[in-house]
Nucleic acid binder design. Sequence first.
DNA 1: GGCGGCGTCGTTACTATATTACATTTCGGT
DNA 2: ACCGAAATGTAATATAGTAACGACGCCGCC
Lengths: 167, 167
Amino acid sequence: MTDDAIAAAFAPHDHQQCVHRALDEAAVRLKDQGARLTPVRRRTLEILLESHRAMGAYEVLDRLAAEGFGRQPPVAYRALEFLVQHGLAHRLQRLNAFAACLHPGDDHHPVFLICRSCDKVAEAPFTPIRDALSAVAREGGFHVERATVEALGLCAACAETEGQAPC
Amino acid sequence: MTDDAIAAAFAPHDHQQCVHRALDEAAVRLKDQGARLTPVRRRTLEILLESHRAMGAYEVLDRLAAEGFGRQPPVAYRALEFLVQHGLAHRLQRLNAFAACLHPGDDHHPVFLICRSCDKVAEAPFTPIRDALSAVAREGGFHVERATVEALGLCAACAETEGQAPC
DNA sequence: GGCGGCGTCGTTACTATATTACATTTCGGT
DNA sequence: ACCGAAATGTAATATAGTAACGACGCCGCC
């Protein structure tokens, strides 16, 4: 995951291809792990990938229900949990929302950059922040196991727009 | 907020005095701001301070209701929101929980260190982490406005205990 | 003292988010 | 074809959070 990936997530791009590639990668990864990419799960991942932003579980559920899948909460929660467990999606605690993981290859626990204007989400490399965090915590005798970092702000594209037409 | 404060939060200490001091400080701060420390609000802060850990809004509400205050959710949410707004408490998104702020003087947006064993919460200085975060984000054209950092792990005290009696 | 505005407190009712429990179906291996 | 495990669907319920409204009390002002 390079720094360019951050800009790429917010910038306009060939999203069709982006989705397609992610789906292919997902299929391969799951096969390796002996896990099944069933219709609900595949469709759930597609929905997350298509929107390219964080979605609430119930928003996903509505989409699934409209397409003939079950309309009870567990349907969405199970599919989303499966994707998270297999590294294909992330859960954003702050928003109580989910976003597709765009870099499933890297073993990572990313930092989320959430644009408050367009709601899109990017993942930034965690290492530098974890290093800073671990160092601070260690001085207090605290051992960090997992950390959640969610930054709210403005992406480059929205910053431009706001600059042109402020409030 | 020094690094020692992290260790202090998890270590055994004269908590009575700790609570007392925080309440006094709170009263002064609120007077300066022209805000009223009413009975519910004061009791809510006491409850948070006494437990010294993150508490759910409904847990606080139960305590309040048992002591003759209202038993409807808004009672707790309002008091907690008031405390947060006046810098006397924090909201932990990850846990959907609240914790009393131990360093209300400093203008800070802290990093939370949450012990998974004893549930206690410490606040660490944000600056080094924010610097690392902002640098990473800037390379992607993203401007960070607010960030939430919540680390789950083991505090020094619990690490010792676990070391003595593993699983 | 009485009056009016404002903030606080309490309630009801509701929305949103998430989980438990259980019946049914589907899939893969034999 | 059959069995067991996994996956799917449902209803019901738990948990978290908000909206809307009325009552009360405090304080400044007449």
